[in-house]
């Protein structure tokens, strides 16, 4: 794990949309753009090694992602995607 990712704490900000964050681990080439440019520093390098021999990113905690979609857009490898969670359904389930 690099020192730069350790130095940045997660910024708490209001969520833009409710999403589930996914990474296709074997697509990652380890450029770390997603980790560097995440506006809330929600990502870090994981301990795992993928087929290309790099550490793919992972979420620091489940609720850290605010769903802005920047990592999905800036990933040159198409390795990150956000799955939209329908909040209305969730609320109905609670009821």
């Amino acid at each position: 794990m690099s020192l730069t990712t350790l130095a940045k704490p997660v910024v708490r900000r209001k969520k833009i949309q409710e999403v589930k964050w996914h990474v296709i681990e074997d697509f990652c080439k380890g450029c770390t753009f997603c980790i560097e440019f995440c506006p809330v520093n929600a990502l870090e390098e994981s301990q795992k090694l993928n087929v290309k021999g790099v550490h793919p990113p992972k979420l620091k905690s489940e609720d850290a992602c605010i769903g802005c979609g920047l990592c999905e857009r800036i990933c040159p490898e198409f390795a990150i995607y956000l799955e939209k969670v329908n909040t209305n359904e969730k609320e109905e389930e609670k009821k």
Binding site: V54, I74, E77, F78
Partner: peptide, 29 residues
């Protein structure tokens, strides 16, 4: 699962551009 996969020839992925190359970002945009 990837939302952009319908516009891409998925059988050719992952692409061969280098780590950190901007071409992948241009393709995504």
């Amino acid at each position: 699962h990837h939302p952009m996969a319908k516009y891409l020839r998925t059988e050719r992925f992952p692409h061969i551009w280098c780590e950190g190359c901007g071409n992948g970002i241009i393709l995504g945009c």
